[in-house]
Simulated assay, not measured.
Amino acid sequence: MSAVVVGKKVKIHYTGTFDDGEVFDTSREAEPLEFEVGTGQVIPGFDLAVIGMKVGEQKQVRLPEEQAYGPYNQEMVFDADPNQFEDGLTPEVGQQFQTQLEDGTPLLLTVKSAEEGKIVLDANHPMAGKALNFDLEVVEIN
């Protein structure tokens, strides 16, 4: 039976939790996640965790923030001019907007605070700075 290696396409069932046990995502009630190992389609630690696994094998891993969405970067929090938003749009705390960097890369912004004349946006991934736990099961290797 072959094992997962870099360059193989795999299908994985997973359940992701934070350290407090809260589930943030799962594929168990849907189709398994399919990706090519080692190509950056998933977070780095997820890629590394499946290498060497075989079909039917299950594994639990804890990924430190560096192997997940990276550390939280305070420099990615900034003030925005409320006039930049469409007329009639009043940003609210927790609301998310998608924009693009100059090279076309999508960027998700989250409203951290919204006060009269001042909006604070956060360009960190919502899970930056967090360790993530995964229950993994290899379903298929191609």
Rank of each mutant, 00 (worst) to 15 (best):
2 S>I: 13
2 S>E: 15
3 A>V: 13
4 V>S: 07
5 V>P: 01
5 V>R: 13
5 V>M: 12
6 V>N: 11
6 V>M: 05
7 G>F: 10
9 K>Y: 04
10 V>E: 07
15 T>F: 02
15 T>M: 08
17 T>Y: 01
18 F>D: 10
19 D>W: 00
20 D>H: 08
20 D>W: 10
21 G>C: 08
23 V>F: 04
24 F>A: 10
24 F>D: 12
25 D>K: 13
26 T>D: 08
26 T>R: 06
27 S>A: 15
27 S>N: 11
27 S>K: 09
27 S>C: 11
29 E>N: 13
31 E>Y: 06
31 E>H: 06
31 E>N: 08
33 L>M: 12
33 L>F: 03
39 T>A: 02
40 G>L: 06
41 Q>P: 03
42 V>I: 08
42 V>A: 05
42 V>F: 00
45 G>K: 02
46 F>C: 03
46 F>S: 01
48 L>C: 00
48 L>V: 06
48 L>A: 13
48 L>G: 02
50 V>R: 01
52 G>E: 11
53 M>N: 04
54 K>C: 11
54 K>D: 08
55 V>M: 10
55 V>F: 04
56 G>D: 13
58 Q>I: 06
58 Q>Y: 01
59 K>S: 15
60 Q>L: 07
62 R>H: 07
65 E>D: 06
65 E>T: 01
67 Q>M: 09
67 Q>H: 03
67 Q>G: 00
71 P>E: 09
71 P>T: 10
71 P>S: 14
71 P>C: 02
72 Y>D: 07
73 N>Y: 00
74 Q>H: 04
75 E>V: 03
75 E>N: 14
76 M>T: 06
79 D>S: 09
80 A>E: 13
81 D>L: 07
81 D>N: 15
81 D>T: 07
82 P>D: 11
85 F>Q: 14
85 F>A: 14
85 F>L: 14
86 E>F: 14
86 E>H: 12
86 E>C: 09
87 D>H: 14
92 E>L: 14
92 E>V: 15
92 E>Q: 15
93 V>C: 12
94 G>R: 12
94 G>V: 10
94 G>D: 14
94 G>W: 14
96 Q>F: 09
99 T>M: 11
103 D>Q: 06
104 G>D: 05
104 G>W: 12
105 T>E: 12
105 T>M: 09
106 P>L: 05
106 P>D: 09
106 P>V: 04
109 L>W: 04
110 T>H: 05
110 T>W: 05
110 T>N: 08
111 V>L: 03
112 K>L: 03
113 S>P: 00
114 A>P: 03
115 E>R: 11
116 E>V: 04
116 E>L: 10
116 E>W: 00
117 G>H: 04
121 L>M: 12
122 D>I: 06
123 A>R: 03
124 N>W: 07
125 H>F: 05
127 M>I: 01
130 K>Q: 13
130 K>W: 03
133 N>V: 03
135 D>P: 00
135 D>Q: 02
135 D>W: 01
135 D>E: 11
136 L>F: 05
137 E>R: 09
137 E>C: 06
138 V>N: 01
139 V>K: 07
139 V>N: 04
141 I>P: 05
142 N>W: 00
142 N>H: 01
